[in-house]
Design a binder for these strands. Sequence first.
DNA 1: CGGAATCCACTCTGATACTG
DNA 2: CAGTATCAGAGTGGATTCCG
Lengths: 109, 109
Amino acid sequence: MEKYCKFESALDILIGKWKPVILLQLITNGTMRFGELQKSIPEINKKMLTQQLRELEYNDIVHREVYHQIPPKVEYSISEYGRGLSSVLQVLNDWGVSHIEHMKGRNEA
Amino acid sequence: MEKYCKFESALDILIGKWKPVILLQLITNGTMRFGELQKSIPEINKKMLTQQLRELEYNDIVHREVYHQIPPKVEYSISEYGRGLSSVLQVLNDWGVSHIEHMKGRNEA
DNA sequence: CGGAATCCACTCTGATACTG
DNA sequence: CAGTATCAGAGTGGATTCCG
């Protein structure tokens, strides 16, 4: 029975306050530098951005490309493997949208 | 652009240490009493079980049926609306399973 | 039986300052 | 530029006790 209950492991990868936004940015914009990501998500700070990116990188969702130069340059992008997530995110997104509608309907009643 | 980023709201509903297990129990077993749920998830305590059930109930995923009698009896089940989640969970589950394989492959390399 | 209330522990997030 | 280090606060989880 345990074998059928692996959606927790999928959730783990998406959990984290900023991961959804980061993924959205990278999916829509393609490759982005650290600073670009930071600018596109003004409320985040460097520590959190780094942390969440590292977790996504660890799970092979995001690719990190380092250019060894001064000043440093690091580019992030969705990895080849990570693209497989988009269909999952799409399903989640669709359900999320309809759920918002559903809850709105309940509050009005 | 914001309109396309609603999978966070879907995630919110699934997030919580015990929600996945609770949902799995209710999906596979149908209607269950509070005590039954507790027995089926031995590591959980009443507070957490109550709390997570309330959140699921708030989002209309789980239905709570109270029988006013002594001793009390309360039954939980996946709501009609909540059943719409199963396809989402299925997608997450499938991806989760394949992701575990993916990560295993990477560690061996 | 099915909770509610309380209190403690731990994790996650965030503000700030420093660095190669 | 792209981080790391440190520390403080908020949020989440858990053990225990009490109640109708």
